[in-house]
Simulated assay, not measured.
Amino acid sequence: MDERYNRNRIYVSEEEQDKIRGTRILLGGAGIGSVIAECALRFGFEDIVIVDGDKVELSNLNRQNYVKTDIGKSKAECLAKRLLRINPKANIQFHDTFIDKGNVRELLDGVHIAINALDFKSDIPFIFDDLCSKRKIPVLHPYNFGWGAFLTIVKPGGYQLTEVSSTYKGFEVKMAEFLARYCTFWNMPNRWLDNVIEKYQNESGELPPPQLSVASWIVAGHCVNAMFDILTGKEVKFFPKFYFSSLRCDPA
Rank of each mutant, 00 (worst) to 15 (best):
R4A: 14
R4N: 10
N8Q: 14
E16Q: 11
K19G: 14
G22K: 15
T23Q: 05
T23R: 02
R24I: 00
I25A: 03
L26P: 05
A30D: 05
A30R: 01
G33D: 00
V35N: 04
I50S: 02
D52Y: 06
K68G: 06
T69I: 15
I71W: 01
A80N: 04
L83S: 02
R85S: 15
K89L: 06
I92E: 00
F94E: 00
H95M: 12
D96K: 07
F98T: 08
I99E: 03
L107D: 01
D109A: 11
D109V: 07
H112R: 15
A114E: 00
L118F: 04
L118E: 03
L118N: 07
F120G: 09
K121N: 11
K134W: 04
R135I: 09
L140Y: 02
G148T: 06
G148F: 05
F150N: 09
F150Q: 09
L151H: 04
G158C: 07
S166T: 09
S166A: 09
K169D: 10
A176Y: 09
F178A: 10
L179T: 13
N187H: 13
M188D: 12
P189A: 10
P189Q: 10
I197Y: 08
L207F: 07
L207K: 15
Q211W: 04
A215F: 00
A215S: 15
S216R: 08
V219P: 09
G221P: 01
G233S: 06
K237Y: 10
K237L: 14
P240T: 06
Y243K: 02
Y243W: 05
F244S: 04
L247S: 11
